[in-house]
Computed example of a mutant assay.
Amino acid sequence: MGRMTKRFRKASEGLNAETTYGIPEAIKLIKSRAIAKFDETIEIAMNLGIDPRHADQMVRGVVQLPNGTGKSVRVAVFAKGDKAEAAKAAGADIVGAEDLAQEIQDGRMDFDRCIATPDMMAVVGRLGKVLGPRGLMPNPKLGTVTPDVAAAVNAAKAGSVEFRAEKAGIVHAGVGKASFTEEALVENVSAFVGAIIRAKPSGAKGAFVKKVSVSSTMGPSVKLDISKLSAESGAKAA
């Protein structure tokens, strides 16, 4: 643990915890400090001025990162017949119907994203208590309940990221890898921030985005300049 602390201190040199930065400068600082022996994930955390316990203040959605996440995503699809074949052709890792439901009920869930055709929701609905707490329940608003399963599989594999505010009003996600170019990371962070700003719920009052920070898996965090976010992400606050 002492070695890890020493590495963290080295990575934190020259950083002021209270200084805020524009997205490009923040990415440059984070990327140069990702010095672990593995390809660290670049992560973002956004503190929002909401109370997710109220339905009109919930923030949830999906965003397509232009340069992907750098993570291999395993996709399970509930479908039958031609739709099942289309899902397989698109690269789905697991495809099934009642048999897949039984596997999940038995505790076998080796996947990161779950997609279903509308006609399979009667089967999938019975798995709500298992899939729901893990954030894996297919949802039409997120594009994971759809007749076009091939497009949904392609989107998941290409880097679509689902987001949902936690109880404290925090949204976080992995937005790339330290091995990505600075430009690619800036584009991904901008896309994610823009999606959150556009997802501002009707019940949110006052300042919507209160604090944003980016970091690498093992590195220090850097705060983003809130006043620049709308312009840098190309999004207008609701």
Results as ranks from 00 to 15, higher is better:
residue 94 I to V: 15
residue 94 I to Q: 13
residue 96 G to D: 00
residue 97 A to W: 08
residue 97 A to T: 05
residue 103 E to P: 00
residue 103 E to H: 09
residue 106 D to K: 09
residue 110 D to C: 09
residue 111 F to E: 07
residue 112 D to A: 03
residue 112 D to G: 02
residue 112 D to M: 01
residue 116 A to F: 03
residue 121 M to D: 07
residue 122 A to S: 15
residue 126 R to C: 13
residue 127 L to D: 04
residue 128 G to Q: 08
residue 131 L to T: 02
residue 132 G to E: 09
residue 132 G to P: 10
residue 133 P to K: 10
residue 134 R to C: 11
residue 135 G to D: 00
residue 135 G to W: 05
residue 137 M to K: 08
residue 137 M to A: 09
residue 138 P to M: 06
residue 141 K to F: 09
residue 143 G to V: 04
residue 147 P to N: 15
residue 148 D to M: 01
residue 148 D to F: 06
residue 148 D to A: 03
residue 149 V to W: 12
residue 158 A to C: 08
residue 160 S to L: 06
residue 162 E to C: 07
residue 162 E to I: 14
residue 162 E to R: 12
residue 166 E to W: 04
residue 167 K to F: 14
residue 172 H to L: 04
residue 173 A to P: 06
residue 173 A to V: 03
residue 175 V to P: 06
residue 175 V to K: 01
residue 178 A to F: 10
residue 180 F to D: 10
residue 181 T to A: 14
residue 182 E to M: 07
residue 183 E to C: 10
residue 183 E to A: 14
residue 183 E to H: 07
residue 184 A to S: 12
residue 186 V to T: 09
residue 187 E to I: 04
residue 190 S to K: 04
residue 190 S to W: 05
residue 191 A to M: 03
residue 193 V to D: 08
residue 195 A to T: 05
residue 196 I to Y: 00
residue 198 R to A: 11
residue 199 A to E: 03
residue 202 S to W: 09
residue 203 G to F: 08
residue 204 A to P: 05
residue 204 A to V: 03
residue 204 A to G: 10
residue 208 F to V: 01
residue 208 F to Y: 02
residue 209 V to C: 03
residue 212 V to F: 01
residue 213 S to N: 15
residue 213 S to T: 15
residue 218 M to G: 09
residue 218 M to L: 14
residue 218 M to I: 13
